[in-house]
Design a protein around this nucleic acid. Sequence first.
DNA 1: TCCCGCAATAATGTATACATCAATTCCAAA
DNA 2: TTTGGAATTGATGTATACATTATTGCGGGA
Lengths: 227, 227
Amino acid sequence: MSETKKEKVGKGLKNVVYQDLLDKLIRCCYKPGTELNELKLTRIYGVSRTPVREAVTLLEMEGYLKVLPKKGIYVTDISLDNVLEIFQTRLEIEPLTLKMAIPYLDIRELIRLKNHLTEGTIQVDTAYEDDMAMHLYIIRQCRNHYIIHMMEKLFKDNTRCVIATGQNEVKVHEAAAEHEAILDSLIRGDDPDTCAALMKKHIETCRASALAYFSSPEYLENHRDLV
Amino acid sequence: MSETKKEKVGKGLKNVVYQDLLDKLIRCCYKPGTELNELKLTRIYGVSRTPVREAVTLLEMEGYLKVLPKKGIYVTDISLDNVLEIFQTRLEIEPLTLKMAIPYLDIRELIRLKNHLTEGTIQVDTAYEDDMAMHLYIIRQCRNHYIIHMMEKLFKDNTRCVIATGQNEVKVHEAAAEHEAILDSLIRGDDPDTCAALMKKHIETCRASALAYFSSPEYLENHRDLV
DNA sequence: TCCCGCAATAATGTATACATCAATTCCAAA
DNA sequence: TTTGGAATTGATGTATACATTATTGCGGGA
């Protein structure tokens, strides 16, 4: 009933609603604190309450929505603590994950990722996507579902935080240089600890950049509400 | 309609069904491979399909059930790979988690856990519960929701594996001795790396014990189907 | 006997009706 | 004017009816 009828994202309206809502929540089309309710959502998607409810149930379990009975459905807030936890986790786990992944990395894929970085000028608008692509590729090769699952969720949350707080001005060239260093190290076949150290350094740079942003006048101006 | 009407486990029949099903899946009352369907479940719980569906949807997302459209709902299998992943994750993450938790550990709680171990004879039937209690207490104090969430899921899976494979004969005294060593080290306020090393050693013991069990004639006899 | 096809069945997917409950509003009485 | 309370509203919780579809089984024809 909405637009194109058979998108087949994942079969079933439940999955369509879930995927679309998840995407909108991560991209902050529905900002933290927004109040929704089932009726609104059924009208937006042109489906009945059943698929909406199932999608909402899943998103509540994932922590993006909170259902208050007889009150409404609320988009969960983001806190500075949350951002700190994300970086703490990345600092502690990602270097480890990289070491686990090394035996399974495909050199061709690493080269492809590197070429993406150095293909002429870096495009700012896709820089964040490319950034995540490298991290997620490495993580997925660690062959441990528990860690992969945690890290994929973490990167979703990270994206949501980045968008919610408006830190679009990531230092793309600095990050790209560090990415290149990591990829080169992996391609050369350096000692795992060496590669992991480069990854740790990179994440520390990211964290410093994010925390600096949260203390900047620019941020404090626009987001007296958040964090 | 079933038995006691107002159990209030978590408000809502959805939560009642979810909690009960989760418990039964972890305890392998529904063994891996079992085929269920919504109708059966509605009859078992005496509720309509709606709460059943919502519970099933959640359990499918958690990986305990798999819904095959127009076929049935199947209890997911357990593989040896899964067991290996569990121990790999514990070996890599739990010592780290312990170090993160140290500043937040409550000495009184550590002493309480230790007294539990040394109170006369160790009761075999509750040994596994007590074992998990210590690990989960430490993990929860690490104050990182991503890691806590992952590890709680992992311990649920671990319990399910232990029960499914029937390794009730955990070496309770050996495990208890290692637990005591860890707790003593924490209570003394040893260096974090020292404590973490004890934890790692303990998990290695657990893994060795589990893997030995999987190679034992006793296991191979009873479980030609599994793993 | 074997095979093709249609129909019945049984399962999930979806929509909607009904139940419940909390918050709000509005009216009446002090 | 203020306040208490009952009724209405609006939200989710639950049950059920309806739609869709894959599977299965039966039956007729080659």
